[in-house]
């Protein structure tokens, strides 16, 4: 019972990136981009610059092992996702990660620290594939576009990317290349404009 709740929560929170669903709309082509942007400046581009950054992808791995570090190596000690994305019985994510970064140890932390479910793996995928997956209710935990927007712009674990703390050597972790405000703005614009996934 508890497990279910956690799972639901997880799905709800982690998947956030999955912008939803206006897959139909896109397919039917009724949405149109009316604003013109410089290359790489479109809301979609800005958003995806963040979502494909290691701060996000490290916890959306393609296998069962999280990645870590600026070089996105497999998480040390081969820790695994476990049944619910929170690790195993002997150790959970929370054995080492708490609700906040720890400057003494360099262990990062944020509320709901966990791995995104396997169906939400981003590692090795293109921007378009990630976006499609994120907006597809079958692959995003049945979320609406609005849910996704909330997750992407409000969830503490997502926003941790802009406060990633220091690493084990005491050096600041790299932040995503787009400032937080601009990113939030971009996500909102993109979703409000119908979440159009460009062809690439």
């Amino acid at each position: 019972m508890k497990k279910k709740a956690i799972k639901y929560f997880l799905i709800a929170t982690l998947l956030t990136s999955s912008v939803l669903v206006f897959a139909n709309l896109t397919e039917s082509g009724t949405q149109e981009n009316t604003t013109e942007y410089k290359v790489g400046e479109a809301p979609f581009d800005k958003m995806m610059e963040v979502l494909t950054h290691k701060r996000c992808v490290n916890c959306h791995p393609s296998g069962n092992v999280p990645r870590q570090g600026e070089d996105s190596h497999l998480h040390n000690f081969d820790v695994v996702r476990g049944e619910d994305g929170h690790g195993l019985a002997g150790y959970t994510c929370n054995t080492c990660h708490t609700d906040e970064n720890n400057d003494y140890s360099g262990v990062p932390g944020a509320p709901h620290w966990a791995l995104a479910p396997e169906i939400m793996a981003w590692e090795g995928k293109t921007r378009v594939e990630i976006a499609q997956q994120m907006m597809d209710p079958k692959r995003n935990g049945g979320r609406s576009a609005h849910d996704i927007m909330e997750h992407l712009t409000e969830h503490e674990l997502v926003l941790w990317a802009w406060e990633p703390g220091v690493d084990a050597e005491g050096n600041p972790r790299e932040k995503p290349p787009v400032p937080k405000d601009e990113y939030i703005q971009a996500v909102k614009e993109w979703i409000e404009a119908g979440a159009v996934i460009p062809e690439e």
Binding site: N76, G90, V107
Partner: peptide, 21 residues
């Protein structure tokens, strides 16, 4: 001191926690 070796493992509310972190 980096939550890697596990020598500092304790239980907090019944769960294993690495107390150095």
């Amino acid at each position: 001191g980096k939550a890697a070796c596990g020598a500092c493992t304790i239980h907090v509310d019944g769960n294993a926690v690495r107390s150095c972190s």
